[in-house]
Write a protein that binds this DNA or RNA. Structure first.
Lengths: 213, 213
DNA sequence: GTCTATAACGTGATAGAC
DNA sequence: GTCTATCACGTTATAGAC
């Protein structure tokens, strides 16, 4: 961790690492179609030829980046739902914090993954299975537990998948639409971050307020 | 209206209209960078040369389309907030219905507008002022009214802009991430539409449940 | 006004010097 | 391993026939 930081400062990253770091940045920001290999090369401090020396072509680099980012986007939620002795409310709270923390660390991640899936929906299941992630399991687990909570009388009746969409919407949309929000609400980057930090607990309270009996 | 429908069936649209209809479809689905003028021409049932006869270049066509779609995306909310004798709750209810209805009619609209703004945030204010839309006014009006409602004791304390982000998130995210949701929840297009139809009132209740005192 | 043919350009990919 | 130069190709844009 500290090692990584030092590496970065000295920039004794290998050339492969420089390429992938640069590619991740540019692809995530602009998407596959709008990205020029020249952008990646410049960002990595080298020329295009070197990209092709290490990786066959643009698509190859993109696939590596997409797989990584895809997994960053979806993983973690599973850890939370595998956790045993935790209340439903606490699981929701951790999901919210996890999602917002992830997106605070990785700007543009949500928009990137959603867009590239929109361009080719098959990628979702293809890449998902490749990295051993099946988000459908999460959905089923969530639906099942929602039903149980309703039966136990801890929450009012609500469809599990609907509640899950509520949670995801509240966490992800502000980051997907970040440039729109920043412009309309006249927020700079720091102010946006501060708003999202506050938003973690507020979102949790907003949801619980609505569903608890 | 009916006239438009008949026009469409007979397809006695002018060539300009055919081009713009086709461009709107392709640009909205794929975005500027991934769109090929060949795609637009084929969709419009003609060849590329004719596009250039009517419009100088790809960028010109895009600007026209973006302006139209941008205004579809933002207008309407203002009508609702200008409406006089309507309660705060009812305004929220109409906002939700308006947003979801709009996006049910125009798939990919939200993702398109958000993405193109993300690629060039200045477009938001530039195009906004060009068509006489200043969404900041909506935000201010919403914040002001939220404060009043809190003062009146109809809702619990909440920051106006935070509540507005909640509402927009709940309405827009499912459409932005539609391909992800459809794949993960194994919904076809009709099932997704049905889910969103139900979602209108459920979203309203979810919000009111949370904020009302 | 609409087409075919082609020019002009940008971008991705490769060859070869160092 | 890294660079410069260049090729190959796809896409946009234009010229000119009909």
């Amino acid at each position: 961790m500290l090692n990584n930081l030092v590496k970065h400062l000295k920039d004794d990253r290998t050339t492969e690492e420089k390429i992938l770091d640069a590619a991740s940045m540019v692809f995530t920001k602009k998407g596959f179609a709008a990205t020029r290999t020249e952008d990646i090369a410049r960002q990595a401090g080298m020329n295009r030829a070197l990209l092709h020396y290490y990786y066959r072509d643009k698509q190859t680099i993109f696939n590596i980046i997409f797989e990584t980012r895809f997994s960053e986007f979806f993983k973690g939620l599973f850890v939370i739902f595998d956790a045993g002795n935790i209340s439903f409310f606490e699981k929701i709270r951790r999901m919210i914090h996890h999602e917002i923390n992830t997106l605070l660390k990785h700007p543009d991640l949500a928009r990137f993954v959603i867009n590239e899936i929109a361009q080719d929906p098959e990628r979702l299941l293809k890449h998902g299975s490749k990295i051993g992630i099946n988000p459908r399991i999460l959905i089923e687990a969530f639906e099942k537990q929602t039903e149980e909570e309703i039966k136990n009388g801890t929450i009012r009746p609500i469809e599990g998948r609907m509640l899950l969409i509520h949670i995801m919407s509240l966490c992800l949309y502000p980051f997907v639409a970040r440039p729109v929000l920043e412009t309309l609400m006249q927020l700079n980057s720091e102010q946006f971050t501060a708003l999202m930090e506050r938003r973690k607990e507020e979102t949790y309270e907003f949801i619980i307020n609505s569903i608890k009996k």
